[in-house]
Design a protein around this nucleic acid. Structure first.
Lengths: 211, 211
DNA sequence: TAGTCATTGTAACTGTTGTTACTGATAACT
DNA sequence: AGTTATCAGTAACAACAGTTACAATGACTA
């Protein structure tokens, strides 16, 4: 675990803190698709993401979903932070978008390290800041963009996350994450294909002009 | 200032911290409509809200706005927190919704108090948590509600904030904050009036059934 | 009092998104 | 090979939101 830690977090945390983390943290391998946090659950430990990606989802009154953003290497879940501290229920769902490796920190340490390590405080504050900005980005997309622009942005983001210009999703799955219907996505994808921006296949989509 | 502080923050902060705040904080009276933070600005001090309400706005690529949420008594601006710490530019605009009283804390103290006072850390974390939840609420409204429901929610929120069932806004102003057009708002307001939920007048709207 | 301006009401139209229904294509399974 | 299920393409339509245009009303001022 030490190796993964130092590779990804050495520039953030001082040596003592890295030692503490490696002592109390537990290493976990998460398979793609695994549900890590469910809405309404209490969270008992905090994840430091080493590799892979986690998607964060919000649910509407009918149980349908909306993708909020992705977490990547070096990120942590801001929701978890105060869920731990304040013993509050999770407002979001977290699912492994790809296979992921992470280190779980028991919640008792959070308060202790916040008092002790400046680098830990900075990390926590920085995480909050990043998550706020990601939510603002999400709001921008939903409020200011039309569905075709949102779709294109989503596809590019997916490609970036998986480091692959082939996206293995059905139209139905995409529709679900953008909180719209399959027919709408099929229609817009076909339009994007005619514009030469994507190539459509059964069960996967090839992104042509990544930007 | 001590009086305002203890009235609103005594239950949150220990005595020593309250003393420190009253020593380094500066009291400010903000008139309704005053622009407190502009997008792209660097922020040099952190506000603790004593009374009144601040509206937080996001701007689109055309310079039009969208209301994100309101800050009220006991709140602070989470954006400001990391803007201060990380020397980052503001992503949002803050305008006094009503006359407001607040205490400004110089940014140097933030790091110091975070190390020193547990209650300060809790306050900061709690603030972040509240702001994240408010953004999630905003996302829910935009993504899951239709414009008439958003409008009704907005009107109720406005009435609650100002503690008055009369809303002194023009249709144009409402349209602007909901990021739509005046005609749409007029149309929907007329529908709400026919349903007996509001009473329309020139320059003000009376909310009938607050829920 | 007449004129000007901001505000509101309304009609008519457009464009986007959501819905329903059906068809064909492809993969998976027996 | 034949059956079944999933996935994608498309048409037709409905609902909603955004746009343009213009009229009517009230408020303020010269």
């Amino acid at each position: 675990m030490i190796q993964e830690l130092t590779q990804n977090y050495a520039h953030l945390f001082e040596k003592e803190l890295l030692n503490e983390i490696s002592q109390v943290g537990t290493y976990k391998d998460i398979p793609e698709g695994h549900k890590m946090i469910e809405i309404g659950e209490y969270v008992r430990s905090m994840p430091l993401l080493i590799s892979g990606a986690i998607k964060i989802l919000r649910e509407d009154h009918d149980g349908d979903e909306l993708l909020l953003y992705f977490l990547e290497k070096g990120d942590t879940c801001a929701m978890t932070l105060t869920c731990c501290l304040g013993q509050k229920k999770s407002e979001i769902r977290a699912i492994a978008e790809t296979d992921a490796k992470l280190i779980m920190i028991p919640i008792e340490k959070m308060e202790e390290w916040s008092a002790k390590y400046k680098s830990w405080r900075n990390f926590v504050f920085e995480s909050y800041h990043n998550r706020l900005n990601e939510l603002l980005e999400t709001i921008d997309s939903i409020a200011f963009l039309k569905m075709d622009e949102r779709l294109l942005k989503y596809l590019n983001e997916k490609a970036r996350i998986s480091n692959d210009n082939i996206i293995n999703s059905t139209h139905q799955e995409i529709a679900y994450e953008l909180h719209t219907s399959r027919v709408v996505i099929s229609r817009l994808l076909k339009k994007l294909e005619n514009l030469g921006k994507v190539e459509l296949h059964r069960n996967h989509i090839v992104i042509k002009n990544i930007n």
